[in-house]
Design a binder for these strands. Structure first.
Lengths: 399, 399
DNA sequence: GTAATTAAGTCAAGACAATTGACTTAATAA
DNA sequence: TTATTAAGTCAATTGTCTTGACTTAATTAC
């Protein structure tokens, strides 16, 4: 009788959902196309001129868009283009890495306004969280000095750290990432900063960055292959970041390179971790990237060898991604030194034949994305901006 | 000046989008949970009782739902559950296979009402299309004999055929699937039947079937591994079928089993085509499935060998799918004889360790789905029903 | 047995956001 | 100079969900 199985249903929607969506669509259109007139927006979004006018008025008075100089387009009244106001919103991004933490402040269009980093003390979250909260506070102070309204217009804090989440650890983890993954980071950061907090893995964060200001800008189907300490893929599927049932979609580091007995995870051959091991480098070395840069540019034999195997594995990965996701493009990015990523890309050509070789292709199959130690922190910061302003299915629904 | 680059923007929405979405949400809730009262629906969808009442009244007068016997739930007025009316809508499904074509009629809840098949003559689309149109007409006549309102309530025709689409052929194709893939099937069927037509690959169709009436019912993140003449995956991501930028997402038959020189596509080892080749069977043999059934049940040595290698490759595939998509579950289905799928499943255990091994898991990592020569046709028919009635982002947007 | 409580469901008015169609403004083309 | 075209606004309308009070019908408590 009193059978209390939960009822599963999608959420309904109402006027507010409609309105919220249309606002987001306007902002997205301005982000992707640059400045547009009200009439352009009406045509592009299929809303009426009047509706667009009302929404733009509202966005303007909210300080999110401004009008630019009118332009004459031939016959008819000149149009007034509107563009996003960079200072319309800000977000903080936080990267927690094995021995470092980085924090960044960005504005609505993805300009980086502040960047600070700190060493993470050994000992994991219990001691590290203090360093992180201090770092965030410092970024906020510097941001406030640059942009007066920053605190009122701060939409959130995005954190990024290596995944996968929710997995029992294997113990071989000198930097206690496992401890970090178990730590109630979201709650602690929310309480410690008073901001809305979201967490993602580093590949997903890098992907969000590529979509906001990088090679995936304006694309609805793109996969970023992110090479960091590990390797992961960030998935833009149908215009939204896809994170899977448990937030671990795209964690291809564990993908096995061969069927059968002695198969190796991709991560063991194509990741910075594998490079460090191959070269016997200390990952905590503060001038590690400079060293790698030198080794690459002097044509060090071991680097060349590593690039060869890694490129072969990456070629396979790109083929797999194309086969499985059918994206518009694959973007290779990473926190690796730029020169290394460039070498990898060069060594990866020619790509394996795949069904991505289409006659109607407009974007290259493989593109270089950001290769910068700050790209994950940037993507982490872009997360809250995207959550707040990008059109998404979930944003239309109630609650 | 007259710089006519197209403006890219997402579509806006309005009241009708809201209303359409809420209708779909109701239908979905009834499909997933069975009968629900107006009050239940209001709680589950987060809409008000009044809104739900209005929508249910409308759905009832449209003949899509009916009230059932009132039930006493303890204190308070007894509730009146509503359920979907099977005869509320119908759809036709068409499978075009290498040497066969099958057509099916289903109702709103996925009951199969009519099924007919025909041999496809050699000669490809030019001669085959006549057979297909006749088959569809025959299915419609039989359906009309069973269900008076069927023609008025026919929401569309879903077609399924082997992918991938938009690829240059390789010539080794005795059944002219390549010719079929180039043929303007959608337009021809639309003109020939007067129905709304949609086309999908067979794995996607099988997946839609699993979601409507099979193992993926009510799941929002599931991947179906479909073993037919080839092998493919159908992707339910975030509650919707994901088809990629060009409709080829999930075509994992081309995935390479090993990195480096002599790598084999998955399709060459785990597909019925590979089985036929291994056993020197004729794929066009009309009693092929019976033969396979006998061979399996008598424990034929070559079948056992094939199952062993295929299971090993499928074990790898499941691991890959779990790694890449992070789904709630993986479903093994196919047009292969049931007994063979069961043997494969048995031989696949134990699965490789992966991040799908979670303590909070409620569904098995791997499940058996439909294994039936009709599952693709069923899924093809379920396609139009899903397009018309399932909640989707695109259904909210204008145009 | 009566009254209180709880829950389902309806009624009618209200609120919100997009739409409609006529109008104004300001440019180019004839 | 006039006609045409296009951007953008004004005011009224429409469609859909929400609100709050009300009705109905069951169980529980006294």
């Amino acid at each position: 009788m009193n059978d209390t199985r939960p009822i599963r249903a999608k959420s309904g929607t109402n006027h507010e959902g409609t309105s919220a969506h249309n606002r987001r669509v306007m902002i997205d259109a301005l982000r992707v196309n640059g400045a547009l007139s009200r009439a352009d927006l009406a045509r592009a979004t299929r809303l009426t001129k009047q509706t667009v006018s009302n929404i733009i008025d509202e966005l303007e008075s909210d300080g999110l868009v401004t009008s630019q100089q009118t332009v004459r387009n031939g016959r008819g009244q000149p149009s007034t283009p509107y563009a996003l106001v960079p200072e319309g919103a800000f977000a903080i991004g936080l990267q927690i890495d094995r021995h470092m933490t980085r924090a960044i402040a960005v504005d609505l269009v993805g300009n980086v306004l502040v960047r600070l980093e700190a060493k993470l003390p050994s000992g994991g979250p219990t001691t590290g969280i203090r360093v992180i909260l201090d770092l965030i506070a410092a970024v906020r102070r510097r941001l406030a000095a640059i942009a007066t309204q920053s605190e009122q217009r701060l939409v959130g804090l995005g954190a990024a750290m290596p995944g996968p989440f929710g997995l029992a650890g294997n113990g071989d983890d000198p930097w206690m990432m496992e401890a970090w993954q178990k730590f109630p980071l979201l709650e602690t950061l929310a309480v410690g900063t008073g901001l809305d907090v979201s967490i993602q893995n580093d590949a997903a964060a890098a992907t969000i960055a590529e979509r906001m200001v990088g090679a995936a800008h304006g694309l609805d189907h793109a996969v970023c292959l992110y090479i960091g300490y590990g390797i992961g893929a960030g998935l833009i599927l149908g215009g939204e970041l896809y994170t899977g049932a448990n937030g671990n979609a795209g964690e291809i580091g564990m993908a096995l390179l061969a069927v059968g007995g002695k198969s190796t995870p991709l991560e063991h051959r194509a990741s910075l971790a594998s490079l460090y091991q191959y070269l016997s480098l200390d990952p905590a070395d503060p001038i590690l990237y400079a060293k790698i840069h030198d080794l690459v540019s002097t044509g060090d034999r071991r680097i060349v060898e590593w690039v060869e195997t890694a490129a072969s594995d990456l070629r396979w990965s790109v083929h797999l991604i194309e086969t499985v996701f059918d994206p518009q493009t694959v973007i290779l990015c990473g926190s690796a030194p730029r020169i290394l990523v460039d070498r990898l890309i060069a060594a990866m050509g020619p790509l394996l034949p795949s069904l991505a070789e289409r006659p109607d292709r407009t974007v290259p199959r493989l593109q270089v994305g950001m290769a910068d130690p700050w790209s994950v922190a940037l993507g982490a910061a872009a997360g809250p901006i995207s959550l707040e302003f990008d059109p998404r299915y979930a944003a239309i629904l109630k609650d």
